[in-house]
Design a protein around this nucleic acid. Structure first.
Lengths: 209, 209
DNA sequence: AGAAATGCGGAACAATTCGTCCGCTTAATC
DNA sequence: GATTAAGCGGACGAATTGTTCCGCATTTCT
C-alpha cells in the first residue's frame, strides 16, 4: 500500500506568506481589505488563498492563533530573562507594542476562538501575567488590585493602530508609562459609574445637529 | 422678485436621522457597513443619503464634526459644574465613555478634518483640557507631566468598542481609574524604547507558523 | 528519469455594493 | 386650495469583491 505522500513543502510557505501579507494589508487598509489584495501581496493566486482559508473568517482565525503564539513567545523571552513584577509587565507591554502591527487586528472584533488550543493559549497568557502581578504585589512594586484581564484589555487598547503620524509609537509609550504609574500606586481601580446618564447624552445629541 | 424659498424642514430632520443611523450601524457592523443599510435604518431612501452626503467620506466628515460638538458640550457641562483638575478630567473620561458609541468611529481612521470649524473645535477641546491639567498641577492633584494630546489619545483608546459582553464598560472604567492614578503620581511619563527590536520580532515571527 | 498526485494560478461566474437618475410627493408660499 | 420647486424613494446599470473550477506546473516518490 502506497501510504499517503508527504505534503508539498511549498504549501506551508505560501500559508506563511499569506498570513504575513494579510496582517500587513489589514493594518494598512482595515479588516475589509479585499482578499485578492492579500493574495497579490503574498505573491500567490486567489485560489491558493481560498484553498488554505475558505473564507475571511478562517483567515482571521489563523491570524488570531498566530497572535497568541507571538505573545507566548514574548512571555518566554521575559521569563528567560528572569524578569518579574512591574518590570516584566513593562516589558510585556512595550514588547507587544513593538509587534503591534502583527497583533492588532486579529485580537479585536470577532468573538475569540473557542478551539482547545486557542483556549489553552489564552489561559497560558493569563496565567503568566497573573504570576507577574502576584510577584509585583509581593515585592511592593504593584499596589493596584488589577488582574490579568485588565492588563490584556489595556494591551489590546494601546497596541491599536494609532491615529496618525510616526509619533504614534511615542504617544503609545507615554500611555504605557502612565498606566504603569497607575499600577504602582494603591489608588482605587474603579471609577464611579458615568455621571452622564443616557438621558443627558440623548439631550446633547438632540441639541446638536 | 420671489426670493429664495425657505429650505424644507424635513430635509434637516432626515440628515439628523441619517447621522444617528450611521453611527449606530457603524458601531455595530464596522465602518464598512453598506450605505444602503444606513439609509434603510434611518427610514429614508438611498437617494436621500447621497443627496446630503455624496460619498462615504462626506458622511464620516459629518460624523466627525458632530463628535466634536458632543465633546464640547460635555466640556460645557463640566465647566458649568465648576469642576477642574483631576475631577474634571475624570468626568471628561467617564462622560466620553458614556457616549462612546457616538464618538468612536468618527474620530479614528481617516485623517482629521482640516476645515476651519473642525480645527477650531479641536483647539477648543485641547485648550480646555490643558486648563484642567494646569489647574490639577496647581492644586497638586496631578503630578504627571502629561499634556492634552495624551488625554485625547487615551480617551480615543478607551472609548473604542470593547471586545465583548456588557462587562466592556466595567473594564473601561477600570482602565480609566488606573490612568487617573497614573496622572496623580509624579512618576516618569516615558518608558524606554522597546527592548524588543524589529529583528527579534521577525525572528519570533519566522519561528512561528 | 518517469509516474502520480498535490498544489498552483487566474479566468470566469456570482453576489454585493456603489452611485445616478427621474417620476412622484410634499412642504412652502401666495 | 392652487402653484411651485425642493426633496424623496427606489429601480437600475456600473463597479467592486467574493468564490469556484480546472488545465498546468511542481514536488514527491519509485
Amino acid at each position: 500500500m502506497p501510504g499517503p505522500r508527504k505534503a508539498r513543502s511549498d504549501a506551508e510557505a505560501n500559508r506563511r506568506r499569506l498570513l504575513a501579507a494579510a496582517v500587513t494589508a489589514m493594518y494598512r487598509e482595515g479588516r475589509a481589505v479585499p482578499l485578492a489584495t492579500i493574495a497579490a501581496e503574498a505573491g500567490v493566486g486567489v485560489g491558493t488563498l481560498y484553498r488554505s482559508y475558505p473564507d475571511r473568517d478562517a483567515l482571521l482565525r489563523a491570524l488570531e492563533h498566530r497572535a497568541y503564539g507571538l505573545l507566548n513567545d514574548l512571555l518566554d523571552d521575559i521569563e528567560r530573562e528572569g524578569l518579574s513584577g512591574l518590570d516584566a509587565i513593562a516589558r510585556y507591554l512595550t514588547g507587544s507594542l513593538a509587534m503591534s502591527d502583527q497583533l492588532v487586528l486579529p485580537l479585536r472584533g470577532a468573538p475569540p476562538l473557542v478551539t482547545p488550543p486557542a483556549i489553552e493559549a489564552r489561559e497560558s497568557i493569563n496565567r503568566r501575567l497573573e504570576a507577574f502581578l502576584a510577584a509585583g504585589r509581593a515585592d511592593g512594586g504593584i499596589r493596584a488590585p488589577v488582574n490579568a484581564t485588565d492588563l490584556i484589555a489595556f494591551c489590546s487598547l494601546v497596541t491599536h493602530p494609532l491615529p496618525h503620524g510616526p509619533d504614534g509609537e511615542h504617544l503609545a509609550r507615554r500611555q504605557i508609562a502612565v498606566f504603569l504609574n497607575g499600577l504602582a500606586t494603591g489608588g482605587p481601580v474603579e471609577v464611579p459609574a458615568p455621571p452622564v446618564t443616557r438621558a443627558d447624552v440623548e439631550r446633547a445629541f438632540r441639541r446638536h445637529a
